[in-house]
Write a protein that binds this DNA or RNA. Sequence first.
DNA 1: AGAGTCATGTAACGCGTTACATGATTGT
DNA 2: ACAATCATGTAACGCGTTACATGACTCT
Lengths: 179, 179
Amino acid sequence: MDIRTLCLGILTMRDATGYEIKKVFEDDLSHFYEASFGSIYPALNRMTEDGWIACKAEAQDGRPDKKIYSITSAGRMAFMDALQKKPRKDRIRSEFLAMMMFSDLMVPSRIAGLIDERLAGLNAHLKEIDTCMDEAATPNVVRFLRGFGQAMYRAERDYLEENRHLVEAQALMSRAAAD
Amino acid sequence: MDIRTLCLGILTMRDATGYEIKKVFEDDLSHFYEASFGSIYPALNRMTEDGWIACKAEAQDGRPDKKIYSITSAGRMAFMDALQKKPRKDRIRSEFLAMMMFSDLMVPSRIAGLIDERLAGLNAHLKEIDTCMDEAATPNVVRFLRGFGQAMYRAERDYLEENRHLVEAQALMSRAAAD
DNA sequence: AGAGTCATGTAACGCGTTACATGATTGT
DNA sequence: ACAATCATGTAACGCGTTACATGACTCT
């Protein structure tokens, strides 16, 4: 499921511009996917060529024409096919954890700083989810996805708080051994 | 932190061949990073050119020469620099969750099947971690990383078990409304 | 005054996956 | 017999990021 296919999926839900699709990525998918304009706009152009989506341009003053995309029946079929394929393994890439692996090459204050920043980020995410979870009118699916993010962030926060000593103590021991 | 830099980091811990580096990715980093030979071997070649690592070839019979890489002082400095940069945001890409977003386009049995498979995968991961967590002689850092994976897998399992109804019920309701 | 929102795009570039190529040895 | 382990690599290709280009309107 590349960005292209995901854009197509979003267009099964409603007509949208590239700009609006980006917002769906930010609002609903941000915890487990991201996409930049540099990938969204070319994706839309290509799918238009392929006949999977159609585009109506709306003139605006002082801004580029607004291009409202809608899915075609060929596009809808293509997306249904994509939903029948088995999802591939998650791709995760965490530089934070990769750095933790080398904690014995860092001074303790650096390790602590990294973990503190990470926790701050997690708490910020959680706060943000909390504020938008209250809103009624949120579809169940979006609730499910947001709740998923929430559960993961909480689990990570709890784990870090309880286990940071494993990397922080390790650094102290390596330094002690070096003396 | 690209694959190249991570290979360099692994070589701060011990000399290794490309093949062995791949195993470190599989054993210690698999929960939040992955790398294929197609990225590891070119990375090693390039870092050799750059003078960050050095290579000793060992002849073998019936197999390609074993190339044992070791980090140079220039390489060690480069890696220390990398550890001072602030880690970039995690990159996550979950096709499973992306598909869940479109649960109302799938028949209930398909949704249930996807979730069941996902749970099976999570349980398999957890089982695997359980078996290798017992081993003494596992460094604290590796414990920390494995424990991290464990905590995440458990959190996801629990979340899915408790909240799958949100996507499964949604599908039923959409279908009911369509009747 | 400055940040943020709306709105589209292109071009270069790097990164990494995938598939291919080779082939002996060891374990089930 | 068959799969897995050991061991290295290349080439094509796609995907996506990043930076750049443009510019008005609105909120603080």
